[in-house]
Design a protein around this nucleic acid. Structure first.
Lengths: 183, 183
DNA sequence: TTCGTTATCGAACACCTTGTACAACATCAT
DNA sequence: ATGATGTTGTACAAGGTGTTCGATAACGAA
């Protein structure tokens, strides 16, 4: 990709993220984004059809990173899918968040968090559906699978939401224990 | 309240609800609302400061009704707060929804459902906080209260969401059982 | 370096939406 | 009947959206 394109794209992403952590999505204008990113109006629309598309692309960028199949570097950092026990998958995800890769934390705890938590949940559902045992099996077999998958992913998202909006004072291990206690 | 005011107000609420069940909140314009409600532009702004305020008022109207302390009429219809067992409170709420009071169902299952489910959850949290025993006590006492309350209300909301978006094929009793099974 | 390609710029533009203002009219309660 | 109050239609300024276009600068390959 052209160096210029990359630069513009990242300037826009950066400006957008900063704005998102400060004010509500609806109130952010394209004018503000391009001013902060220091790019021309036409450039913005050359990259993103609308503000909504920009948001989608940003979400992709953020969550593909976390849920990606490739290793994301770092010390003995096994990928999610290669982990063995349920506990380690959950802990792994929480530690990912705690390390604040991609500055995702600001976006998960700001007033726009529902925007991102929705994507988070969708990715989680896919993960659970493909490998249900990673998050612990249901005890009651009369429950429909769809309901159970939805419940587990929703509970995880709510747990993360609670953690981040309360200042992340607890350790990842503690949060993991809370989650497992209610599931 | 003046008959004219009431008429205008309800025409606006009606038009707004219809539009909400068809398209996303962000894409609805004041122009569309007043055209469908058949009221003048100035009238709209005489009633509601902005579209956001209209939404808030609509939510109040919808949820105050469900969570209101007064009886809502009908056959041996005890109020939520007067019910005895956890099971009956939950069942009561679900039946309320199933009867589709205030045409709330369309709004809970349309693409704007997050808008309303947020209010729903807030009301639930208040209810659980004031009378925790109504929704069953937590087994594990090492869990923080805040986390537990959030978990229970979120699970209830997710249950309702799952129920409505899947066509409400199950009975209120079945859904109540699902909910109690995961809590 | 040179050269064709491609991204960016900035300014202008038409269009739409918002929220306000006001005078004329309709409806209300008494 | 009458004064008060709600509604109407129109007009308006302010601000946001998405597009266009020629000029300019940066790019990658030869």
């Amino acid at each position: 990709m052209d160096r210029r394109q990359k630069k513009s794209r990242e300037a826009i992403f950066g400006a957008f993220s900063e704005l998102l952590s400060k004010k509500h999505y609806d109130k952010i204008t394209v004018g503000e984004i391009i001013e902060r990113a220091d790019v021309g109006r036409a450039t913005f629309y050359a990259h993103f059809e609308t503000k909504d598309f920009l948001l989608k692309e940003l979400c992709k960028e953020l969550f593909c990173h976390i849920f990606d199949k490739t290793k994301s570097g770092g010390e003995n950092h096994k990928h999610i899918f290669e982990c063995d026990a349920p506990k380690s998958v959950i802990l792994h995800l929480l530690q990912h968040l705690q390390r604040n890769d991609n500055n995702i934390l600001e976006l998960l705890s700001c007033e726009n968090n529902e925007l991102f938590l929705r994507y988070f949940k969708e990715n989680l559902k896919m993960l659970i559906q493909s490998q249900p045992e990673l998050f612990g099996n249901k005890r009651d077999n009369s429950l429909p699978d769809g309901y159970w998958v939805n419940h587990v992913s929703a509970t995880f998202v709510e747990t993360v939401k609670w953690w981040t909006t309360n200042g992340m004072k607890e350790s990842a291990e503690t949060i993991s224990a809370y989650f497992l206690a209610v599931i």
